[in-house]
Nucleic acid binder design. Sequence first.
DNA 1: GCATACTCAAATGTCAGACATTTGAATGTC
DNA 2: GACATTCAAATGTCTGACATTTGAGTATGC
Lengths: 235, 235
Amino acid sequence: MSRPLSAAIADRLSAQITGGELTSGDRLPSEADLADHFDCSRSTVREALKRLAARNLIRTKRGAGGGAYVNRLTFDAAVDAHVVTSTLLLSMNAVDFETAAEARFALEAACTELACANRDQTDLSALQAAHDRLAAPCDDEAFCAADVAFHRAFVDAARNPILSYQLAGAVEAMQPLMNAITYAERDRTEILALYTQLTDALSARDPNQIRHVLRELQALTIDLFHRASARRKSR
Amino acid sequence: MSRPLSAAIADRLSAQITGGELTSGDRLPSEADLADHFDCSRSTVREALKRLAARNLIRTKRGAGGGAYVNRLTFDAAVDAHVVTSTLLLSMNAVDFETAAEARFALEAACTELACANRDQTDLSALQAAHDRLAAPCDDEAFCAADVAFHRAFVDAARNPILSYQLAGAVEAMQPLMNAITYAERDRTEILALYTQLTDALSARDPNQIRHVLRELQALTIDLFHRASARRKSR
DNA sequence: GCATACTCAAATGTCAGACATTTGAATGTC
DNA sequence: GACATTCAAATGTCTGACATTTGAGTATGC
């Protein structure tokens, strides 16, 4: 029995869902029925169902009319999963900082044109609000959270949910790495100045200026990182 | 008991892994020990472990010296997960084609600069190979596979694994939607001509030309889609 | 001394049956 | 018609058992 039965059952059910045979809102048979159908015990079926639940493919309800229902995958849930995976990937694979920063800013630059074309007054407000929180005196954790909010506000300005979803992974997964910088480097005025320029450029719908600021931001980020690691090494 | 115990246990273990308390290669206690520690039955622990396994956080081995080991998340596994999630997200949320295409080509454009800077002879060969497979007479499925290979070769030319990982979701998740086009639209010469231009532009390290071709590709893709759906409606 | 075969114990994988708990729906009462 | 009661269908959990896998130690044969 090389492959556990519970995994095989999970695969078959999962294929039915991803393949469209079972669609959002459908109810799976009860655990007892599934056990009967797959000719195994209820525990085995349960383990299979837990695998699906962990991947957000189903949700289970107790009581009468309960059971396992095919989940509609929401953007929020997908973003969460993507962020977790990306973070883990970075932390487990010794990706060097410059590669990560390069990817991050390249992806962010991908939003430039669309953000200029589609940005709204609410986007500018969100950007400004995040900027204000960054400028106010705050602890490192709050600063980082506001930093993420700033970048997400920029991405969201493109008004393309797919793009926002894809980039959330890149932006938020960098957070632990960025933390290493801001925790060490207390002088945040340089970053803030560039953020101001970015906000202004988006307000003016000036893609070239945005690209310019992003390049500078990337250079500054990498520079800060090198300064931080040099200081760490010298101790 | 609002939240199932098995889910709570899964959360706690998962937090230990993502939080770095348990790192790649570490062995979790045996199911019996965990059951003892969490003061619950072995079945409940098992359901929690299956949840972790489904998310690729652990792998389990049977026999002596077996048990649950913290998995090292590989790029391949992360890409797979990302593609599945992205595909599901698109199929379950009635995203209109133009939004998806817009996101896809914006992301692809994000690779332009890096691809021009870092592209290698092997990248050009991979691109050419995919192009050849596209040009040869082949069935729709093979055409689509080669199409994906072409786009991934372009992305990989940026030589940034993080970027490749992020974009795999966008490129492959579009596949089902693209299928709808190529299956209907047999004339592939237009696409192939643009692909040739893209290959040449990358060979010449000409970012402006690449951006131009990508814009044309996006326009063509959307146009093909409209033609296909108009034809579908007229029947 | 070395290779092979055997045994053993520690784990996970599976099963069967039981009970607890939740919850919507049917039913009954006023 | 509004409210309380009962019921049955599910999931959630527990217990104990057995099957299976597998590495490590041990014995055997040469």
